[in-house]
Structure formats: C-alpha cells, structure tokens
C-alpha cells in the first residue's frame, strides 16, 4: 500500500522529523524541497534528524526540547535512545542480553 505521507515536521523549529510508515534502508524521503537518504531501517513513528545535530545539542520536537544528543548525529540519521538522552529521568530499556 502506498502511503499518502512519508515524513512529517511537527513544528518549524524542530530538528527531527517523524516517519509515517516503516522505511527501508536506501530509501530517499522527500519533504518540501529537501531529500533525505535513509541508511537504516526506521519504523513508523520513529524520528530522523532534519539537519546535523552536535553532541550536547537539544533535540527539538513539537517545538520543545525532548532531550539532548549523546553524540554527533548526521542529517537523515535515526534519532532514538542510542544517541539521545532524557534531561530528567533516564529512559528504561530492557537488557535483552548478548545472545540476541
């Protein structure tokens, strides 16, 4: 099924964009005049960087800081628990062990 939207920006100050369906590695997503080459699988609802984000910089979604970058993040890269952190309470992730 072809989706109507692939990518949305929730507010103009945001430095992350939300994908509207599962995206396969290698796809190019377009939003306005901008193209984003996606280099990894990204699931529906997850975020990508709309521009390069530096280590320590605030991640802005809905025009509000939702945390900060744990390292430099490249434009088009998946933005999630592996490269950003909460500035309030650490995010809990189940340790699935090394055999997974």
């Amino acid at each position: 099924m072809e989706s109507f939207k692939k990518l949305i920006q929730l507010s103009d100050k945001d430095n992350v964009l939300v994908v509207c369906r599962d995206i396969e590695s290698g796809e190019v997503l377009q939003l306005g005049s901008e193209n984003y080459l996606i280099k990894e699988f990204i699931a529906l609802g997850h975020k990508i960087a709309s521009r390069d984000i530096a280590f320590g910089e605030a991640i802005v979604k809905f025009n509000v800081a939702i945390g900060s970058a744990l390292r430099d993040i490249k434009r088009g890269e998946h933005v999630h628990v592996h490269n950003i952190k909460s500035d309030f309470i650490p995010t809990y992730i189940i340790d699935k062990g090394t055999d997974v």
Partner: peptide, 15 residues
C-alpha cells in the same frame, strides 16, 4: 516509561 514506549519510537519521558 516502559520498554514498549521506546520500541514505538519514543526516546525520552519529555517526548
């Protein structure tokens, strides 16, 4: 915040 929230693309409690 539960594991499923993160699986679903939420990264932090702020988000």
């Amino acid at each position: 915040f539960a594991q499923g929230n993160a699986d679903g693309g939420l990264s932090t409690i702020e988000e």
